[in-house]
């Protein structure tokens, strides 16, 4: 591995605790021990990284951002849980509704036909007004 290749690899190095176990850096670190210029370059690189990261860490999120995110996540979970009923429950609910409607319809049909009664009564009233009452009397007798 030449110096430029080692620089390219070491540019991706963050810190011992995060990247120390990654074998890709081992060979580059070996190169460091034998190359004083590369070692100096790497130290400066680490200084640059530390300095830039410290400055960028100054970007603070708004104080209420975490609470806002958590509130929206909880809201979304509730909304989803309402619409995410298991299919078995939906099937049972649908059966109950359809069964109830069928029962209601059959009961209604089996009972007195109120509309038919109403129609008969209404027709009778109209006919009574148009027909001479004496003729009705005669018809009945």
């Amino acid at each position: 591995m030449n110096s430029d290749a080692a620089k390219e690899i070491l540019s991706a190095y963050r810190s011992e605790d995060r990247d120390g176990a990654d074998p890709i850096f081992r060979e580059a670190f070996t190169q460091l021990e034998n190359d004083a210029e590369l070692k100096k370059w790497f130290e400066e690189q680490i200084d640059l990284d530390r300095s830039v990261q410290q400055k960028l860490a100054g970007i603070e999120p708004p104080a209420d951002l975490q609470a806002k995110i958590l509130a929206r996540i909880r809201g979304e979970k509730v909304r989803r849980s309402v619409f995410a009923l298991p299919p078995a429950w939906l099937a049972v609910a649908a059966c109950l509704v359809l069964g109830g409607l069928a029962l209601l319809y059959s009961t209604h049909r089996g009972g007195p036909d109120r509309f038919q009664e109403f129609k008969t009564d209404a027709l009778a009233m109209v006919l009574l007004r148009r027909v001479d009452p004496s003729s009705i009397w005669k018809r009945r007798t």
Binding site: L56, I59, P61, P62, K68, I69, I73, E76, K77
Partner: peptide, 26 residues
């Protein structure tokens, strides 16, 4: 949020973008 701020250079947009990202994860 920091990444969003670097992209948008705007506090409100960065906050919205961060919230939206977590909502998509949910």
């Amino acid at each position: 949020y920091r990444f969003a701020f670097a992209l948008t250079r705007n506090e409100t947009q960065a906050g919205d973008l961060t919230q939206e990202t977590f909502l998509i994860l949910t």
